[in-house]
């Protein structure tokens, strides 16, 4: 049967892609912020921007999930089956991350600032929320990877890809946040922008490599082959090649390299370059989720091991 005969799944669409993207991005920003605070002294601005961006971005992502539910008013029930359901586990992870993340930020802006010093809560909260942020990013891939009939999603490469993509998008988002930080009157050092760009170079390369393996590894199963076909040759090919590969990978890679090389040059040019790199990279990050979600093809029905017909859901 020709691959075109298999239709894409219609269970989830762009709203699910935005949810996966924003939770990955928010979790990535927060994780990087915490890691910078724990591991690198002298980059406190990056740590602050990462933490301050991470929680609200993930919160907006969660709102997109709510709007995608058939009955958002009953959403609290989603936590009831963590023993078997990844949706339940993810809801608990994301909910805990958001609550503790907000608490962590609140400790710095509220009169509770002294409390965090007294009780040495900062490091404890950092460790817990950082771990939850990491889980939230990985979960966005795991949530899809558990659906066996959708073989394009059902691979351990997907959580890895979403993690790397989340980190890359987060590095660029923090860079953009730094530019905005500077614009509203707080100064950011160019070396901070440069270090973000330097870190992003290998991450983007790794993301490209993972996408290559992800698409190449999908040739074994017919439904996955159809998914890859839709993505790189079919009706989504323009989004993949122009939107994701060119705008989302190649341009941010070049932007990061130039930023790293010219970080000691003109400050305004550096900020413009960082902004453009971030806009392109963030668009690419979303398109990756969008393409993965929309390219999902359910396994065809096999009748007696002989006849094969497209899944009737389509």
């Amino acid at each position: 049967m020709e691959l075109e005969k298999y239709g894409s799944q219609r269970i989830w669409g762009w709203r699910m892609a935005i949810y996966l993207y924003l939770v990955g991005l928010g979790g990535g920003c927060y994780l990087i912020g915490i890691l910078f605070d724990l591991l690198f002294s002298g980059y406190s601005t990056i740590a602050q921007i990462g933490v301050l961006l991470g929680v609200p971005i993930a919160l907006v992502g969660a709102l997109f999930l709510l709007t995608d539910l058939g009955r958002p008013d009953k959403a609290i029930r989603a936590i009831l089956r963590p023993s078997t359901s990844w949706i339940s586990r993810g809801t608990l992870i994301l909910g805990s991350f958001l609550i503790l993340g907000i608490l962590y930020i609140a400790f710095f802006v509220w009169p509770f600032a002294s409390l965090i010093d007294v009780m040495n809560l900062q490091r404890v909260l950092e460790a817990i929320t950082g771990f939850l942020a990491l889980l939230a990013v990985i979960y966005t891939g795991l949530a899809l990877a558990t659906f066996r009939p959708l073989s394009f999603w059902c691979t351990p490469l997907l959580p890895a890809l979403f993690l790397i993509s989340g980190v890359s998008s987060a590095l660029m988002a923090i860079g953009l946040g730094g530019v905005l930080w500077d614009l509203i009157g707080y100064s950011i050092e160019t070396r901070s922008i440069a270090v973000l760009a330097s870190l992003n170079i290998p991450v983007i390369l790794l993301e490209g490599l993972l996408v290559f393996f992800y698409t190449q590894g999908s040739h074994i199963v017919e439904a996955s082959r159809s998914s890859t076909h839709k993505m790189i040759r079919g009706n989504l090919a323009v989004f993949f090649w122009v939107g994701f590969v060119l705008i989302g990978l190649v341009l941010p890679f070049m932007g990061s390299v130039i930023t790293k090389v010219s970080s000691l040059g003109n400050r305004e040019n550096l900020f413009v370059l960082t902004t453009l790199t971030a806009i392109f990279g963030l668009l690419g990050g979303y398109l990756l989720r969008y393409l993965v979600v929309l390219s999902g093809v359910k396994a065809p029905l096999t009748v007696g091991g002989v006849m094969v017909l497209p899944n009737p859901e389509i």
Partner: peptide, 11 residues
């Protein structure tokens, strides 16, 4: 709650 996870999981 209409999350449709069951629809994705059903072969």
């Amino acid at each position: 709650i209409g999350c449709r996870a069951c629809m994705a999981a059903c072969p």
